[in-house]
Amino acid sequence: MLLYILKRVVSAISVVVVTLVASFALFFLAPTDPAGTICGTRCNADRLAEIRSSLGLDEPPIEQIGGYMKGILVGRDYTTSGVVQHCDAPCLGYSYTLGQPVTKLLAQALPVTVSIVLGGAVVYLFFGVLFGTLSAQRRGGTLDRALIGSSIVINSIPYFVVAVLVALYVTVLPHSEYHPLLSNPLLWASGLVAAWLTLGLTNAAAYTRYSRASMIESLGQDFVRTARSKGISERRVVYRHGLRAALTPVVTIFGIDLAGQLTGAIFTEQIFGLPGIGVLTLRAFNQYDLPVLMGCVLLGSVVLVVMNLVVDIVYTVLDPRVRLG
């Protein structure tokens, strides 16, 4: 098990390195002139040269990428507007539009996204699995039709429309803003509740359908019939025996969804005004802030490989037949 995790970590690191090199090449070495784009229309030669050197574009490509990697491992110095700034490891570069190290920006934005996404996940896992199970138990009945019908309706509306409607019209919810969890847990929760419900209930619609399908299959299995023949209560048959086996496929989807959302819940953050990774990425994209964009891409790749590893480890806990190796 430990050896397996070690192997996976090594392969995860290589995935991240490949992502790093590829996106670095895409952003910095492509035959475009990022400095010129940033400089804009009111540009002069001095300003252009300064942007070039602050981005390191005046160095050979190998040195550029070497410098970037060195920054990640041991830190490096930057010169902006004639001032030398030290950037501690892991240094992902320096944002010239915000005047801050990328690492610091990510460190500020990540807790916001994690708060939104994990809170939302609690909501959609709970309601999705509950509704899916109820639906599967009453397959073809009124409740089943009502739940599946509303699930399809909710998922037919684009997510950002739902989010805008909630933000505009569901005024009973507390105002959305981000407060750090540790400074005031109550404010933290009340500022996020609108985002949690929006993200949670729209995803719950999809999870209702996943869980229902998985549960219907599981309830048709021979071992559920065996459980029933033992004389245990129907609730125990459904929840202990049926649901237990139905959860594995749902966990697979959840792992992929969670990884995607952690790389930035763009709509949720933007519409509810929560400064997370999604908003940071969007802003960097609009302002051609390449170091920040690079940082967000790297963070995303790390989140993805970590989540994949976590899902695989969770499998071994869920299903005793799965052995890692």
Partner: peptide, 21 residues
């Protein structure tokens, strides 16, 4: 209360009839 106590059943395929988890 009746199932399992007064009457019990052995099924065809023990592989699928026992809960794998």
């Amino acid at each position: 209360r009746y199932r399992g106590a007064d009457a019990a059943m052995i099924f065809q395929d023990p592989q699928s009839s026992l809960h794998p988890y």
